[in-house]
Design a protein around this nucleic acid. Structure first.
Lengths: 202, 202
DNA sequence: GTCTATAAAAGGATAGAC
DNA sequence: GTCTATCCTTTTATAGAC
């Protein structure tokens, strides 16, 4: 049982999943056929079915991979800067042009999570992580404004998700100025603060 | 060419569209078969195809109907009260338990609008109406805070859409407290105002 | 492990009786 | 106008050669 084989197998799986992600983002789950995935991955149906038992299994594995990547992206915003800057870093993900495919993929997942128990639980877990990370950031801001930190985190998450929906359908739209208004509302509570700079521009 | 016939025909179409809407919200477009729609509407395939040429035609007609209903819902919030109360009326749509199906339907439409030109243009038109209506409401609030009214309307729309996504997947979630934080941020600019009451509670 | 070819099933759409 | 029965295409999944 050579170790190389296990590593290669995992590599092939990843190749298939990334190919699937591109197609799913563009076409959705039901509209993407196994043959689409095969072509995108450069493999034959027989090969693909060696690694996954069914299309459903591909969708589940890929949702899991997407959740991991999302968690990794959140960690990038955990540096030790002031809250507004960290929040800005976190939300400025949306300005990257490559983000459009991720946004489209996310939107497809959310829609599918309505009726797919597996995707729903992945969504719930991923969302809980998001709220937790935003809670850390929101805490000092919420304290200043006298609002519940958890609810402020939920509000920021709603803005982020709403912006993702827009970017998914209109990739050319620029949501940063909109997020700038959110910063303005958060920063303007008390102009003189003790937890770092708080500009309102985007 | 009797007028009754025309009215009956329109009535049947509506019956089919409402049946489709229920299925589409629950299962999505691709996963809903023509037979599902037939069963839900209590009609046979032959009858359904008398009124619509294809499944695609049903989807298009139903998206149009949904956009009309959405516009009607927005008009309900156009009464002459103070902006925060009108905004609260508008957003409190989300607290109605029956709203879950509408939220699910909307989320399905958004996901499908990524790759369907027809749905995309309906989305864009519907969204423009939403921003316009919110602009009216947001104007006095934006003036007080010194932010661009159009961008504030976009921000409120993002919160609304983000909340709809959540309600679609978690119908039992209560988003009103989250929206309450938005009200708090909007209302707390200047505690003493001249355009009506501005409580921050939900 | 990967391919080609194909079996098996599902779904969109239609024909023709009533 | 509506139904039942069915055609035809697409798609998932597998069998067997290499």
């Amino acid at each position: 049982m050579p170790k190389i084989s296990e590593a290669r197998k995992s590599e092939r799986k990843r190749q298939i999943l990334l190919a699937s992600a591109r197609r799913f983002a563009r076409q959705g789950f039901a509209e993407t056929t196994i043959l689409d995935i095969c072509r995108e991955a450069g493999l034959s149906p027989g090969a693909v079915y060696t690694y996954f038992d069914s299309k459903e299994a591909i969708i589940a594995a890929m949702a899991e991979l997407g959740a991991q990547q999302s968690a990794a992206r959140m960690d990038a915003a955990r540096s030790g800067l002031d809250p507004l800057t960290r929040l800005r870093m976190f939300l400025s993900e949306f300005s990257r042009p490559e983000a459009a495919q991720v946004n489209q993929y996310d939107l497809r997942i959310w829609a599918e999570a309505i009726g797919n128990a597996g995707l729903r639980s992945i969504y719930l877990r991923s969302r809980a992580q998001l709220i937790e990370a935003l809670g850390d950031i929101a805490q000092p801001l919420a304290a200043r404004r006298g609002v519940d930190p958890g609810l402020l985190a939920e509000l920021i998450a709603a803005v982020a998700i709403g912006s993702e929906v827009r970017k998914a359908i209109e990739p050319e739209a620029d949501v940063l100025p909109v997020l700038g208004v959110l910063f303005a509302l958060l920063a303007s509570g008390r102009p003189t603060t003790d937890d770092g700079p708080a500009q309102a521009d985007a």
